[in-house]
Design a binder for these strands. Structure first.
Lengths: 150, 150
DNA sequence: CACAATGGCCGAATATAATTCGATGGAGCG
DNA sequence: CGCTCCATCGAATTATATTCGGCCATTGTG
């Protein structure tokens, strides 16, 4: 994990489709070296993968919300069961399993407020283990690249 | 936005580095057609970009937390100023701007609990506009692909 | 200090993929 | 029924990824 690795991770987080040649040129190394570095980062598990980022409104999911959920009882079995359940919901795009007051934070992307309402009332509150739900609409979501402190 | 576009978005969300030939073969279309489809999705703004996914523990950021923040007064000026501030913090990897009780949800990745403590006490609570903070440690974070209902 | 071993890097050669573009044919329309 | 339009196609071209043998520089060793 030297400066070269950090630089590669930074560039690939910004644009996961930059060509190997292009990366090599920017970092002033040979393409073969660059390729080997990226392969090594993958093999070491530092670089987990590459993903396309889609525009939610274009997919008919113009409304995002965060749903804080508390389950009861907060046992391993109940938590794992609930996690498996929400992971199957198409409206859920990300699940945070938490300590603290809430057990889960669900990041959902839905069509509109009716859809959001239906997700909370028809899908979530139907679950017997669900103890508490608080929904917040997301106005804006800013994602950043992770920078290596090295 | 037909089934072909949806399939492409699904595949590219799963693996943003699949080759065009590979995608074309799976979808039973010509590579040139596949390329044109992807180009169109980009031009229409449906496909926003491609990003590498890094392993946070490998980057010395093995601890994640969600920090709920309320600012005072909750005016546009204060909110925008605070958003700009947290966007600059290297520990913050994602910022949600919310309605409801909390104004912000900060997804942070830090070295350890000392680091987390220092982020909250030394960086956040130093801000005069900050009215309330609640920190929850993230045990697990599951990301999903967005599936087009079409 | 001399020397061998190691590992990262390089560049040329090869394999593979992206990209272009003219041709084709089916869908929609007059 | 014939015309136009446009998505799709495949071949040709261009660009890129990948391999691999050799070359330092660094490190460890007698």
């Amino acid at each position: 994990m030297d400066e070269l690795d950090s630089a590669l991770l930074r560039l690939l987080q910004q644009d996961g489709r930059r060509t190997n040649r292009d990366l090599a040129q920017e970092l002033r190394i040979a393409p073969s070296t660059c390729l080997e570095r990226v392969r090594s980062l993958r093999e070491r598990g530092v670089l987990l993968g590459f993903h396309a980022d889609v525009d939610l409104p274009s997919m008919g999911r113009g409304l995002q919300a965060m749903i804080a959920v508390r389950v009861r009882p907060p046992t391993r079995a109940v938590i794992e069961q609930f996690q498996a359940f929400v992971a199957r919901m198409p409206e859920v795009i990300s699940v945070f399993v938490l300590t603290g007051t809430d057990d889960f934070l669900l990041h959902v992307a839905v069509r509109d407020t009716d859809h959001l309402h239906s997700v909370v009332l028809d899908k979530l509150t139907e679950r017997k283990e669900l103890a508490d739900v608080r929904t917040s609409v997301v106005y804006d979501h800013l994602r950043k690249t992770v920078i290596d402190p090295v």
